[in-house]
């Protein structure tokens, strides 16, 4: 995949009939999803349906094995790239459970990551001074305490602080495709607004966002272009924002029943 793959026409991401799992267990069972630049997609679904698995497979987590199907990103096979190459090419995963990195300072971590990404994009590295200024601005934008990022990455952070930190990393690294796995879970109302503002500011024609969520509430702040329902490893229904409202009101049973009664649901 070249650094200038942005010139490519067609969808940013195409997931076709994706089957993936861990060990012998199949978790994704023929999943289809197409994401274009400029779009915001929401993925909703019951616990254990495979939402995080989808996000992890796209980010390249080694323990997940793809057994069938394909993932095309910017016109090329994404699955053959290592996780770090995917990140360099613009994929970013905000983790459902961000990992603690004892002894690793956020500033050095982000500087190193941004250096690598900029180098891959053919841009000059930022000087320490330039980076610090940028980092400072983003910390302020995320309304985070500067003391927080002086600590080891995520270590001893509260649940909400970790989620906010994921979005901080996103706005610093400026990916093309951001996968937000339940970033809204565990956030208080003010934090939710800050995170939503961060995402909205980030939103634009040269980016795409996939938000995995259980709650329609965040979609009041970040209006999605599409809402998908993921059940048992497949996207079984897609619609607009109104689908999220319907799910909030009715739960997932009615969709499951519709599938069982043989209704044609593929998209």
């Amino acid at each position: 995949m070249s650094a200038r793959a942005g010139n490519h026409k067609g969808p940013l991401l195409e997931v076709r009939d994706l089957h993936a799992g861990v060990g012998e267990v199949e978790i994704l069972k023929g999943l289809n999803l197409t994401v274009n630049l400029g779009e915001v997609h929401a993925v909703m679904g019951p616990n254990g349906s495979g939402k995080s698995t989808l996000a992890n497979v796209l980010a390249g987590k080694p323990e997940y094995k793809v057994t069938a199907g394909e993932v095309i990103y910017e016109g090329s096979n994404l699955l053959k790239l290592t996780p770090d190459k995917r990140a360099l090419n613009g994929i970013f995963l905000a983790f459902q459970y961000p990992v603690e990195l004892p002894g690793v300072r956020e500033r050095e971590f982000m500087k190193t990551a941004l250096d690598a990404i900029r180098e891959h994009r053919g841009l000059e590295k930022l000087s320490v001074r330039e980076f610090n200024k940028l980092f400072q601005e983003k910390i302020a934008q995320m309304e985070m305490s500067p003391d927080l990022v002086k600590r080891s990455v995520n270590e001893g952070f509260s649940g909400g602080e970790k989620k906010r930190n994921e979005i901080l990393q996103m706005v610093v690294l400026e990916p093309k495709l951001a996968l937000l796995d339940e970033t809204d879970s565990g956030l208080d109302i003010d934090a939710l607004k800050v995170v939503a503002n961060g995402v909205n500011k980030f939103r634009g024609p040269s980016r795409a966002i996939v938000i995995v969520t259980h709650y329609q509430r965040i979609l009041d702040y970040i209006t999605p272009d599409f809402v998908h329902v993921l059940i048992d490893g497949r996207i079984v229904r897609s619609g607009g924002h109104e689908l999220a409202l319907e799910l909030e009101a009715k739960g997932y049973e009615w969709i499951k029943e519709a599938i069982e009664s043989g209704e044609q649901v593929s998209v």
């Binding site: 290592t82 995917r86 983790f95 990195l101 990551a113």
Partner: peptide
């Protein structure tokens, strides 16, 4: 997990 987290940010 920590290695994957860091790789997902672009570190080799």
């Amino acid at each position: 997990d920590a290695i994957f987290y860091m790789r997902s940010r672009g570190l080799d």
